[in-house]
């Protein structure tokens, strides 16, 4: 069972845990990515997330489908990401997986996060204490020309 979301509202981990639950599931794994106050030595005050909503949702669904193919159709997976400007401490991404046993939940949850980082069309612009802002370098979606 798959749930993906792109949201301008606060992400609620309880929604993820509600989705990732079943009587036959003895394990649920939850990952929360948050805005950090420091990056490469520069104090950060906020991060603005830009994303391609339709393609991002499609990529999320593809990644989640791959998790079901790899760890079983019976697992429940949840992947949601914020867009817009977030202050330090706010959750930017939530990934969750439930399964009968813990190994699959751990592995599948990590898969969701790692794949999202390199495949989802999401960009972040950090805002610094000194008033400067910078788009963060990321992962190339194609071979450079």
């Amino acid at each position: 069972m798959i749930h993906v979301d792109i949201s301008e509202s606060v992400l609620d981990p309880l929604v993820a845990l509600d989705h990732c639950a079943a009587d036959s599931h003895g394990a649920a794994d939850l990952f929360i990515g948050r805005v950090r106050n420091l990056n490469e030595g520069r104090p950060v005050t906020a991060v603005s997330y830009d994303l391609h909503p339709v393609l991002c949702r499609n990529v999320f669904e593809k990644i989640c489908s791959e998790a079901l193919e790899q760890w079983g159709e019976h697992i429940h997976v949840f992947l949601a990401h914020r867009q817009g400007r977030l202050d330090v401490g706010e959750a930017s991404v939530i990934a969750a997986v439930s399964s009968p046993h813990r190994a699959h939940s751990f592995e599948a949850c990590r898969y969701l996060v790692e794949q999202m980082k390199v495949r989802a069309p999401i960009w972040k612009q950090e805002h610094y204490v000194d008033g400067d802002s910078e788009w963060i370098k990321g992962h190339v979606l194609r071979n450079p020309a």
């Binding site: 990515g33 997330y49 994303l51 391609h52 393609l55 990401h81 930017s92 991404v93 996060v113 999202m116 980082k117 390199v118 495949r119 989802a120 069309p121 999401i122 960009w123 972040k124 788009w135 963060i136 370098k137 990321g138 992962h139 190339v140 979606l141």
Partner: peptide, 10 residues
Amino acid sequence: ISILPPVCGG
């Protein structure tokens, strides 16, 4: 069509 620079979600 969209142009997508290198990505960095999370």
